[in-house]
Nucleic acid binder design. Sequence first.
DNA 1: GTGGTCTAGACCACG
DNA 2: GTGGTCTAGACCACT
Lengths: 127, 127, 127, 127
Amino acid sequence: MFKVDVMSGQPIYEQIINQVEQFILIGVLKPDDKIPSVRSMAEKILVNPNTIQKAYTELDHKGIIYSVPGRGCFVSKEAVNILNMNNREKLSELENLIFELAIAGVDKKEVEECVIKAFEKKGEIVE
Amino acid sequence: MFKVDVMSGQPIYEQIINQVEQFILIGVLKPDDKIPSVRSMAEKILVNPNTIQKAYTELDHKGIIYSVPGRGCFVSKEAVNILNMNNREKLSELENLIFELAIAGVDKKEVEECVIKAFEKKGEIVE
Amino acid sequence: MFKVDVMSGQPIYEQIINQVEQFILIGVLKPDDKIPSVRSMAEKILVNPNTIQKAYTELDHKGIIYSVPGRGCFVSKEAVNILNMNNREKLSELENLIFELAIAGVDKKEVEECVIKAFEKKGEIVE
Amino acid sequence: MFKVDVMSGQPIYEQIINQVEQFILIGVLKPDDKIPSVRSMAEKILVNPNTIQKAYTELDHKGIIYSVPGRGCFVSKEAVNILNMNNREKLSELENLIFELAIAGVDKKEVEECVIKAFEKKGEIVE
DNA sequence: GTGGTCTAGACCACG
DNA sequence: GTGGTCTAGACCACT
């Protein structure tokens, strides 16, 4: 279920955060679902438990998950709402990226095809 | 002409690389044009010469510029071609980003508006 | 294991790059092996950590090693392949050098002896 | 006749030295022949006269050429002998290069073919 | 502890 | 003046 790529350059704890968030957004993880314990996750993906802890702590701070001492971590009820709040930032990031591509001479058509592809890919996953 | 934002989190040398590449793509810098010397650039944007040197060295390795010790750095003839080669990577990056937005429930229309905006912004710059 | 000659005129960082590559080619360093940390290497051979960093950064860009922040630098799986790709360039360099010697009146026999010596030297190292 | 490549990385004055030496070795320039004046050479190959001067000064120091104030520079009688003295250094350079290729897994046959090619190329030039 | 970025200041070779 | 290398020492993020 969870995977990390140490060679990608992206911090491992960020990769974990992103994956947890993705799983929540596509409905694999629902409110009050338990997410893997720090130790089990660390063993599965072969990373330092501190790294997992850091990811969980940050998710907790964001309000995406809540931790119950002695029981584990669980998806919060507001998780989806919080995640959807971030869209504005991502949209401006998107605009910058498209702008760069436009400058680089990429055709508008190509970008539009890209949009279509991405939405098709979404259709395949969401049940 | 050149600007850096120390607070952006993005490494300064990367910002310089990006700006040089942008100027080449929009035609402000043409093949065999001299780009600012390491020292003059360092004074202009108030960063250490080593940081500029690092940016120029990477641009040289990429084949975007060529440096002639004692004379300066110049835009290579193949610069534009090399930069356009990178479009494919950026397109897949774009697809990922749109996919994330789609998962997050962003409407296709919103994305399409974003595309339009970005291409308008380009139209304003290119003469 | 690693040695640098400050007086040789060849940049220190290049000497380090060459030695890492040599160790990979003769099999002393294998894929996913950890290479010495920037700081430990700097202490061993008494050069500034920045110089080591520069060497490692270039090796990373070439795809010879990959670096995992917080963990260290490791030999990439494709390292040997990449290094062998450079042989063609070296062969043309070799042809030029022999050509110069030929022009300078060096006998073909002398060159051939040189070839034999070099391959003997290799035989001593490879087990 | 003379050519320089500013993009090669090799210092221009070195390129000039090498070319003068080559022309002497293949007999295009013979003892007491006049070599181009600093100014005419500088105009022909579009480099700074100081650079040419530096090359000529070094050739003078080596005893390859001698300069007659007001008349120009001329190939010395001992030029060929002096140049042939350098062969030992080049031979050890050659051995190193072949050694590197051997380590890199290049077949002995390939190196030998290279030797043959280089000597053929020489045969075409020397009349 | 690791790698990565940056500053300050120096020296060299080249033109 | 130019680019290139190097040192010394600092700070950051990541594990």
